[in-house]
Simulated assay, not measured.
Amino acid sequence: MTSPTVPLPTDPTELGIARAAAYFERFEPEKAASTLEPVLSADPRSAAGWLLLARVRLTLDQSEAALDAANRAIELLPEDPRPLATASRALTMMGRHDEAITMAYRAVITEPENPFWHDRVAWALLAADRHLADAEQAARTAVGLDPNEAHYYFTHGVALDALGHIDQARQALLISLRLEPENPVAQHRLATLDGSARDDAPAEKKRGWSLFKRKKD
């Protein structure tokens, strides 16, 4: 039995966004961005286009451009948590931690049952190196909402490590690796806790953003 054919979008804006999304899924963010730019120039009211562009700009480490695109999406989708969380990530990358934390909490308030936004709160707080107990609580909430997602245990492990709860951090990382055994970041973090690897950064710098930056957000 053949699968039903999915009709292609016919609207120029939708078609352009679909093409950009395909490039993005193939790990070609530059092509995705160049495809989206004329689409949004012709149709600046496309919230989906701005949201995708914000994600693409983040992948390209273009934080200011990502924030601008996310803010355009927020104007068009004021009740949607996705552009809020994307803006939070961009603000974290720019070192604007207070704003990043506020945006992350706004996403949680908008959709409190989504673990992804609690995870964003945790990383925003960890990157700011403040309110670490709140970061641990946010990470724990994400785990409770989705106990089958390896990344949330990883975040929880990082937060517990930041608080100095080494044994608990090790347990969280072990669960993360049980769910996702080939994750090299979690492997390295666990090895560091076990004393078989060493970070190059001085001890007082170990909670810096460089240790928290990740691909999946």
Rank of each mutant, 00 (worst) to 15 (best):
T2Y: 14
S3P: 13
L8I: 09
L8H: 10
L8C: 00
P9K: 10
P12N: 07
T13C: 12
L15V: 10
I17Q: 03
R19G: 07
A21Q: 07
E28P: 02
K31W: 09
S34M: 08
L36P: 07
E37H: 13
E37Y: 06
P38Q: 12
L40E: 05
P44S: 03
R45L: 09
R45E: 15
S46D: 10
A48S: 08
L52A: 04
A54C: 08
A54K: 02
A54T: 00
D61H: 10
D61W: 02
A65W: 03
A65E: 13
A66M: 06
A66L: 00
N71K: 02
E75V: 12
L76E: 09
L77E: 12
D80Y: 06
A85C: 03
A87W: 03
L91I: 00
M94R: 13
D98V: 06
E99A: 05
T102V: 10
M103N: 08
M103P: 00
Y105W: 14
I109E: 14
E111Y: 11
P112I: 08
P112Y: 03
P115L: 08
F116L: 08
F116K: 03
R120V: 06
A122T: 10
L126Q: 04
A128T: 01
R130H: 03
H131W: 04
A133F: 04
A133H: 12
A135Y: 04
E136K: 06
Q137T: 14
A138D: 02
A138C: 07
V143S: 06
G144T: 08
G144N: 01
P147H: 09
P147E: 05
N148T: 15
E149S: 05
Y153W: 07
G157C: 11
A159K: 01
L160Y: 05
L160P: 15
A162R: 03
L163Y: 07
L163D: 10
D167R: 12
D167I: 11
R170H: 12
I175G: 04
L179Q: 13
L179S: 13
E180A: 14
H188R: 12
A191G: 13
L193W: 09
G195L: 13
S196E: 15
S196K: 09
D199R: 15
R207N: 12
W209H: 06
S210V: 11
S210I: 14
L211N: 15
K213P: 03
K215E: 13
D217Q: 02
